[in-house]
Write a protein that binds this DNA or RNA. Sequence first.
RNA 1: GGAGAAGUGGCUGAGUGGCCGAAAGCGCUUCUUUGCUAAAGAAGUGAACCUCAAAAGGGUUCCGCGGGUUCGAAUCCCGCCUUCUCCGCCA
Length: 423
Amino acid sequence: MIDIKLLREQPDFVRAAIANKKFKTDIDSVLELDAARRTKITEAEQARAAQKAANKEMAALPKGSPEFLTAVKGMKAMANRAKELEAEAKTADEAFQEAFLSIPNLPDPSVPVGKGEDENVVASTWGDADADYPYALPHFDIPWFESRIDFARGVKTAGAGFPFYVGEMARLVRALVNFFLEEARLNGYEEVLPPIVVNAESATATGQLPDKEGQMYVDEKEGLYLIPTAEVPVTNFYRDEILDSDQLPIMRCAYTPCFRREAGSWGAHVRGLNRLHQFDKVELVKWTDADSSMQELEKLRENVEATLQKLELPYRVLRMCTGDIGFPHAKQYDLEVFAAGQKRWLEVSSCSNFTDFQARRAGIRYRGPDGKPITAHTLNGSGLAVPRVLAAILENHLQADGRVKVPACLQHWMQQEYIGEAK
RNA sequence: GGAGAAGUGGCUGAGUGGCCGAAAGCGCUUCUUUGCUAAAGAAGUGAACCUCAAAAGGGUUCCGCGGGUUCGAAUCCCGCCUUCUCCGCCA
């Protein structure tokens, strides 16, 4: 949620700022609900204050005396009145909160204005996507692919989108996870191994609930959700806490499997590893003060880029435009690797600054110079998601003999220069 | 899963219907003093929201969470959560 004071004091500024986002909000009705709510709260509090004052006088009277009994009669009416007004205030407040939560975060001024994904700006490109890849194939067309990543048996065992990784491919996935974690560690991120289920409070704090409820797998009996990303449990680590400012920025990384229902998003272009219900990812999360989050976003993006470079995969950085950044995002970069077999760019990381939007909702603050709590800023980025990186490795590093060359940076964990079968 | 006990402010811990937003101690901050990495004394020391142009001030709420009883609840009742102990089960 945004800062309510900003909305009250500069409604036109807010209106203009979110005009270019894809989420539509009626600012005027939010302001009206806010005014109505405040009137009701004041009324209710005055009634309660009057009751408490009268009550205090009454408490001094001898219990059971005639004066006492008379006073009790009057008090009953006051108590009922206060209760009524409090109920009205609560209703008005809930109506306001619901409307207020529909206001998206304000895009940073540096975000390019645009209506949708076609207007994202390519900020930079690394490597040579136009190079000749004479042996590249879509990864799902590599002859030995199904013997290493077994979708059919995954369907039998769990369902579509839950493949088995077998033998050297399982080891390659593990190598990638280790490599990503080690990169993060060397860049100063402290590793955490979080729960991979969260409760409704946590899912609400980071914004998965209520809007994206349909995207998560849920255990209704226990009220637990399988995480769609490690962002959820990791960010909630500090929910409802006040941090010391000298701790900031806090940098964490976490490997987890991620679970996404991806309801209604299946089609020809999501074959193979392009989109799965379960996948492995290393997530980077930062908590910063209010002044340095934009710089920290650049560092975060650079950290992820450096990791991609070591994998020798061409990629590009997209500056997401106002019409394509997410609801809680102030600024967002997407990193896409070029998969030479499919001749497609595949998103492997999204690096985002939520400014104070998510932290306000999650109650994450730090103490400022005067000791007063200030809402923190939160950021996160994938560093990286395994399956699409794996897809690009399989496609781009496919050799003349039909095997795939394992990038040098993974040797430490793989101890194997090639995978697959020679023709 | 069964039985029992407990959940109070940064920490320890009083408090069983009104004088409790909450004793006391510790910790922390500021000041005073003596002066050598310390002692003593004084004052202060949570959060959210409403009101106010702002500050000051005022008000409401918060004693695990949510309901209820009552003129009035940290204190009584109900549900839930968590922790601890014992038993059971188990990687």
